[in-house]
Amino acid sequence: MDEQTVRENLRTFIVKDLIRDPDYDLADDEGVVTGGLIDSFSLAQIGVFVEQAFGVYIPDPDLTVAKMDTLNQMVARILRDIQ
């Protein structure tokens, strides 16, 4: 799975299922948690989504606002472990 696919899949999930505003234009370096778009519960949802969609398990200590605030951070973290 290439970076672009991961990024777009993740973006769609966040915008559609978490922000629930399909028209929202989410930038790659936009802070989704610090910007108030989603909260830490959504990080757990992202964690489960990433497991199921990309087969990557992100340990709990890495599932934090500091480490998973932007799309760029998330994608980088996923690609690190992706097969």
Binding site: A44, D60, L63
Partner: peptide, 18 residues
């Protein structure tokens, strides 16, 4: 609170979401 978020909240909610 971040300890508890990491070791209680996050694993529990993920477990339930699965």
């Amino acid at each position: 609170s971040s300890w508890v978020r990491t070791y209680v909240y996050s694993p529990l909610s993920r477990q339930l979401l699965r």
